[in-house]
Amino acid sequence: MKKFPNRWGEYLFIYPAVIFMLLLIGYPLIYNIILSFQDVDLSSLASGDKHFVGFDNYKALAQEDGFGISVWNTIVYTLGSVIFQVVIGFLLAMFFSMKFRLASFLRGVVMISWLIPLTITALLYKFMMGSGEGIFNQMLMSIGFIDDPIQWLSNPDIALWSVIIANIWVGIPFNMLLLSTGLSNLPEDVYESASLDGANWFQKLTRITIPLLRPVLLVVLMLGFIYTFKVFDLVFVMTGGGPINSTEVLSTIAYRLSFNEFEFSIGAAAANILFFILLIVSVIYLIMINKDEEA
């Protein structure tokens, strides 16, 4: 029975996936950074003339229509989505943690909203948020909550929040699921002794549940931030960044520059800014979970 030479066999298990990720993620990542300091558009891509231009692309990006607002929108979008997702997800996790018969089944079924392709979710909300035929306006008007239809996606002051609403719907189940797991790992005897001491529901929530759940809450917040910050599909399909840049985010502006205007280098610069912010948050996140494991 011939065995693999010891180390080589082990590397053969591990390395193909690592090499695959380095080739398809690592290499493009570095390429993208280089690209953002070169001058590459459709014509120089064909001719192969890529000279370095320093920070010109970043300067051009800063002057780009809609860039400033796209940074702001990305932040508002992320914070708005994450805060509501976590709060609602937490309340639902508390609700489903009461051990009634259908609890775990119902909690599972809710996951459907997370699994639907974002393109479809975006289209569905676009339909429901239609100003005349949309069910949202029809319902709100029939209960007399509003007199005139809300221009969910065509009013620049509202459009970003309309996309946030759709994103909250998508994200609730995932947050709920993680928080449910966190809740089920809390020690029950603490609650019992608190009850004996006469603590009420609200005191238990603020003095026991939330402090004990803090590490899980932090992880959920950070993961939510990371996954929301790179939003593309929802915005792209629901509004395409409009009206008048009011929903433009970093990833849509990067895409538009690269693939509609074929300014590859300026698009790369926009994507890099997105990457850089995410990198910082990811590093903080990784340090956090590392500390958690040591503790």
């Binding site: 690592g26 990542l29 690209l35 593309f232 590859f264 698009g267 994507a271 890099n272 990784l286």
Partner: peptide
Amino acid sequence: PMILLFLVTQMLPATVILTPLFIVFN
């Protein structure tokens, strides 16, 4: 480091690899 690599790549935005891969695939 390899485990870290997988953790980090999971968090990257698709937009970052899009333009370079478009050129490479081309």
